[in-house]
């Protein structure tokens, strides 16, 4: 039991660098949602029940632009598809975990929790009770996100200009800190470079579909370039 509790706190500890990066993002969300006309309870309710940073940002922006509810929901769905790809990548390792815990794992699946677990699995592929570690990371993120939303609601009322400071730089540098250390071979570099430029070219595509499509193209580039080196099964 103690060992599991220990693992839980290890996960919560290992996600801290990413929490530092995500915190300003949560504060800005709280301020932005308020500024765009969402009520205090709905601003916090979105963090409590939806719990997805970029989706909440997109929703807050669209609310400000006066978009209809179905459009916002559809856009959020597209933005979230990358989480589905994260979840698929967890499939091979979750089959022995009880279904209730899996639902909790799904709810807590964020870029931050996924990145924390991934970097641990790189060092320890047969990591026992990895889900406890993951849940620790997930709850660390959840608690931080709620606190930051509340802080953002308060600060947004005090400093109306807060959203102009460009605090989403925190997300940019955090993602650089995650991606650059995992770039090890040509295929991974090609994937990253493709994604970088394709996302710029497609940025004005409707409903943020540019991000989704450029990601798919970049993944295809990565797979094509790594195919030759890859093991068994390929007979020509």
């Amino acid at each position: 039991m103690n060992q599991k509790l220990n693992l839980f706190f290890q996960g919560a500890r290992d996600i801290i660098p990413l929490l530092v990066a995500a915190a300003p993002f949560g504060v800005v969300y709280g301020a932005l949602a308020q500024a765009n006309g969402l009520s205090v309870f709905a601003t916090l309710g979105m963090s409590l029940f939806v719990f997805a940073g970029s989706s909440q940002f997109v929703a807050a922006t669209l609310i400000g632009a006066g978009a209809a509810v179905p459009i916002i929901i559809l856009t959020v769905f597209v933005v979230n598809l990358r989480h589905m790809l994260y979840a698929v990548s967890l499939m091979p390792i979750v089959s022995k975990i009880p279904q209730k815990l899996r639902a909790l794992m799904g709810f807590l699946l964020t870029d931050e929790a996924y990145a924390t677990l991934s970097s641990r699995l790189v060092h320890e592929p047969k990591f026992p009770n990895f889900h406890i570690y993951y849940l620790g990371a997930g709850f660390g993120m959840y608690a931080t996100w709620q606190c930051c939303t509340i802080l953002g609601i308060i600060l947004g009322q005090e400093i109306p200009d807060l959203t102009k400071w460009g605090l989403d730089i925190a997300m940019v540098v955090a993602f650089v800190g995650i991606v650059v250390p995992i770039l090890k071979n040509k295929a991974q570099w090609a994937c990253a470079i493709t994604a970088f430029f394709a996302a710029l070219v497609t940025h004005s595509w409707p409903h943020q579909s540019g991000l989704l499509i450029s990601s798919l193209v970049a993944i295809a580039v990565g797979v094509l370039l790594s195919k030759n080196k890859n093991e068994a099964g390929d007979h020509e």
Partner: peptide, 27 residues
Amino acid sequence: IHPLLRQALEFVPIAVLTGIISQASLI
């Protein structure tokens, strides 16, 4: 999961996060 799909998934974080990086910093 098909092995090809699994291989593709290894590129997901790189592709998605890099796309967010470039859009958020240059757009």
